[in-house]
Design a protein around this nucleic acid. Structure first.
Length: 341
DNA sequence: ACAATATGGAAAA
DNA sequence: TTTCCCTATTGTA
């Protein structure tokens, strides 16, 4: 779920769905209740992502700062309005789920239950909402930290539920800026400066596998992009940052810009080249939560898609690291290798 | 019923 | 470096 692409995708959805609209703000779970009261009824000014951080702006220099952490989900759903039946279903697994279009909803597996159907007010046709009405939304399921609801205007009614977030707090602009200031360059932002990351990498003895996940070095990369990027560039995760060449870094950055933008577009992390797709190789597609096709992430013990060697895993800084020992051979610096290499 | 797991990060020690 | 916090889902007893 949450690497940088998830947050940028989510920011886009929130922006499209709620920006410029008065929103009801609540905290069914209670942990954001005080701040929710202060924001309830205000016009949501906009939503923006910086690395893995999300900021939802409200008038008066107030910003809701959200960090999803490992398993947070902020799902956007259509609500009931103006007699338009909810042909689409609230997307379940997809974090930051898009309100699906009708035709996509029709393709949904039969097992997908429409929670709204059972709870929707009786009577087939919905009444048109009057300005100022609050749209009908389902009872919160589970621990909903923050709920946004919009409706009663000329746009489709919608709601969004935040669960499991590491951070959900109300900040001033200065506080927001402080969070932004400690982020490294974000490949998903046009104004990002990759040289800032390079200065950190080139001066560090730390393993590149760790540096890529350090949000003050590079913002938005998580465990999946880390592993996949290193594989695609055939770099040993343990290799010290200072031993990389600038050309390698530039290539990695360019790659990240493309890969992560794809992730924003599709909502999943796909990193395999055309030659290694399931179709091209005649292998079954990956079927798990993440959905995307990857080379090494969580493929330990399975054959490398490129060379057939067994993908390895190890723990690096409390996170699972995955790599192919043959495609990403151990780096040996001149200083430590023997006289004959 | 429990335990383990997960794409993260900050605070405490 | 260790501890702690979030929650839902999946696997084991």
């Amino acid at each position: 779920m949450p690497e940088g692409h998830t947050l940028h995708r989510l920011a886009g959805h929130l922006q499209e769905t709620f920006a410029g609209r008065a929103v009801r703000v609540s905290s069914p779970q209670g942990r954001f209740a005080e701040a929710a009261t202060l924001l309830d009824g205000e016009v949501l000014a906009g939503a923006e992502a910086w690395g893995k951080h999300l900021f939802v702006a409200f008038p008066g220099d107030r910003h809701v700062h959200v960090h999803l952490g490992l398993y947070g989900v902020f799902a956007v759903h259509p609500a009931v309005d103006e007699g338009v039946s909810l042909g689409s279903r609230p997307s379940r697994a997809s974090s930051g789920g898009v309100p699906r279009k009708a035709e996509e909803g029709g393709d949904a597996p039969a097992s997908t239950t429409d929670d709204n159907a059972a709870r929707r007010p009786q009577g087939g046709a919905q009444q048109a909402m009057e300005p100022g009405d609050t749209p009908w939304v389902p009872e919160p399921v589970g621990q909903v930290r923050l709920r946004l609801v919009a409706g009663g205007d000329d746009r489709p009614a919608a709601y969004a539920d935040l669960r499991g977030a590491t951070a959900c707090e109300l900040l001033t602009g200065d506080q927001r800026d402080a969070v932004v200031a400690r982020q490294g360059p974000d490949p998903l932002r046009a104004d990002a400066d990759p040289d800032r990351a390079w200065e950190r990498i080139r001066g560090s003895r730390a393993p590149i596998g760790g540096l890529l996940m350090d949000q003050t070095v590079l913002a938005g990369v998580g465990n999946v992009y880390r592993a996949e990027l290193l594989f695609r560039h055939r770099i040993d995760p343990q290799r010290p940052g200072r031993t990389l060449r600038v050309g390698q870094w530039r290539a990695m950055w360019e790659d990240l810009v493309v890969l992560m933008a794809d992730g924003v577009r599709t909502g999943r992390i796909d990193t395999v080249r055309p030659a290694h797709t399931p179709e091209a190789m005649g292998r079954p597609p990956r079927r798990d939560d993440h959905g995307g096709e990857v080379y090494v992430y969580r493929r330990h013990g399975q054959p490398c898609l490129v060379c057939g060697a067994s993908v390895r895993t190890a723990e690096l800084q409390q996170r699972n690291l995955f790599w192919c020992p043959r495609c990403q051979p151990r780096f040996r610096s001149r200083a430590t290798s023997g006289p004959l290499g």
